[in-house]
């Protein structure tokens, strides 16, 4: 019997050894933020303001280092994605399959769209981004399955892609001509083709529960960690 145990353990370890690797990105520093369970982040065009959404359905306006300046009065159920386009901030409410629009001046909600998706309640829209190559909004479901939906300005779906390179997707951002997707469970950043969403490169990050991704005005990567309520600051991604 002992021999059987030994053989089983040996076979398991051999199987474990085959590991696909991606280069590791190391963060330079991190900051704790006073936003409960931050689930996504997005800079405005100037890079001077950082918008943060939280799992408890609140939109916060912060400094680039994450200090809270003000918060929106409107509360949703479970905000998981945020994007800034022009004078508006767009926020995805995962459970209710809604996208809210807030004006930047007053942080007041002025419009809501319903984008149907019948998957698991906590596996809905986890990421919201604006693809400047296709000039379309992008909503991505978290997992089981990961679906990338491209939508027009009225949030009507115009195209759909399956993404199978990760266990989940927790954030997305357009930067320098590429779409960058973030996986919480795999702790990876994927650089994707902006029209096909095929993976061009990927990097591993050592951050617990990464849920939000953004690039600051100098093109440096910033990751929001939900459980630890921190922002992690990286350098620019190697091209």
């Amino acid at each position: 019997m002992k021999k059987t145990y030994f053989l089983l353990a040996a076979a398991f370890l051999v199987l474990s050894a085959f590991k696909a690797t991606a280069p590791l990105l190391k963060y330079e520093h991190f900051k704790s933020i006073k936003v409960p369970e931050p689930s996504d982040i997005a800079f405005d065009g100037s890079g001077q303001v950082l918008y943060v959404v939280s799992d408890n359905g609140i939109l916060y306006e912060c400094t680039p280092e994450g200090k809270v300046l003000r918060r929106a009065a409107f509360e949703g159920m479970d905000f998981e994605g945020v994007e800034v386009v022009g004078d508006y901030i767009y926020v995805a409410d995962e459970s209710l399959r809604q996208v809210h629009r807030f004006d930047r001046e007053h942080l007041k909600k002025d419009k809501t769209w319903y984008v149907p998706y019948s998957g698991g309640r906590n596996k809905g829209y986890e990421s919201l981004a604006f693809n400047r190559t296709t000039e379309r909004f992008v909503l991505i479901t978290e997992k089981d399955p990961i679906v990338i939906k491209e939508l027009n300005g009225d949030f009507i779906p115009v195209n759909e892609y399956a993404f199978t390179a990760a266990r989940d997707i927790s954030g997305a951002r357009y930067h320098n001509g590429y779409m960058y997707l973030l996986s919480d469970e795999d702790r990876k950043v994927f650089m994707c083709h902006p029209e096909t969403y095929e993976v061009i490169k990927s990097w591993k990050i050592e951050v617990l529960n990464p849920e939000g991704i953004a690039f600051d005005k100098d093109g440096r990567l910033v990751i929001a960690a939900d459980d630890l309520e921190r922002l992690y600051f990286f350098g620019s991604l190697p091209q």
């Binding site: 459970s95 019948s118 399955p145």
Partner: peptide
């Protein structure tokens, strides 16, 4: 590919 739970809202 996998079917997830189904949600109505």
């Amino acid at each position: 590919p996998a079917a997830a739970q189904h949600t109505f809202t």
